[in-house]
């Protein structure tokens, strides 16, 4: 859980790409995923995303993420099965003809699950192969987003692991004081978690204040910024961006022709 969206340092083609082209790729994947609902199309898309992870040598690091996503995908399928009214009943979840599982629902659930996985994975690969400073740089300098907001967002992401570590600390501290954090029924558990959440919030506020002081004394927001190293846009980057565009146009064209869409 701790290593969900951290930068993983490896020597790879994906790492050396400009953040801009990686962002374009991730957005392209999102577009393609939303354009089609044919499971085979989506599975192909997902496998290209996995291939990029492999190319970036971060596939192993994303194993935990993959596991979590699979659980989430299962829930998506289950929800479709329960709420989507289809005609072709395959079997029943409970004996006595309760909760019918229809082919359409299953198909739609699967499509949704694969689509979700492709989109989420592509963005996680983007974050895992790109340094925060480069993301900030590209978002502010190339895409002209306001620096304050970008910095705020990226700092929030950067503090997730610290926050997790602190949560563990607080939980231990409460446990040694005899506070039952990890026992009892779910309701009791939720109640007990308040004893962890409150100190955690207070600690974080304190930390935020200190960080603000540290930033303030180092001239945050003093005026015109410069950047130490700007990642260059290489020919490879141009190719990635160009091919993403081609794929999007192609997808639009196919979609107009009625390919890759299953009418339910």
């Amino acid at each position: 859980m701790a290593r969900v969206i951290e930068y993983v340092y490896r020597e790879s083609v994906v790492h050396s790409l400009n953040p801009l082209s990686k962002l374009a790729w991730a957005l392209g994947v999102m577009f393609l995923a939303l354009a089609f609902n044919n499971v085979y199309y989506l599975l192909t898309l997902l496998s290209t995303v996995v291939a990029v992870a492999l190319l970036g040598k971060v596939l192993k690091d994303l194993a935990t993420v993959f596991k979590g996503l699979t659980v989430f995908a299962g829930i998506l399928v289950l929800l479709q099965v329960i709420f989507f009214q289809g005609e072709e009943v395959l079997f029943y979840l409970l004996p006595g003809h309760i909760l019918p599982v229809t082919g359409e629902a299953l198909y739609m659930g699967l499509a949704m699950a694969v689509r979700m996985m492709a989109v989420v994975l592509s963005f996680i690969i983007f974050l895992a192969t790109t340094q925060y400073k480069d993301i900030i740089l590209v978002l502010t300098e190339k895409l002209k987003l306001p620096y304050d907001y970008v910095f705020m967002f990226m700092t929030a992401l950067r503090f997730v692991p610290t926050f997790m570590a602190e949560a563990v600390q607080v939980r231990y501290a409460q446990q040694v004081r005899g506070c039952p954090v990890d026992s009892g029924n779910p309701l009791q558990k939720i109640k007990a978690y308040a004893t962890v959440a409150l100190p955690l919030v207070l600690i974080s506020l304190k930390k935020a204040e200190r960080l603000a002081i540290a930033m303030e004394t180092r001239g945050y927001g003093s005026g015109i910024r410069t950047y130490y190293k700007e990642p260059a846009i290489t020919k490879l980057d141009m190719m990635v961006i160009l091919s993403t565009l081609i794929f999007i146009v192609l997808a639009l064209f196919l979609r107009m022709q009625g390919y890759g869409v299953v009418q339910l």
Partner: peptide, 9 residues
């Protein structure tokens, strides 16, 4: 800090 103060790269 250097970037904040706009020091030339």
């Amino acid at each position: 800090g250097l970037e904040n103060y706009g020091v030339p790269p």
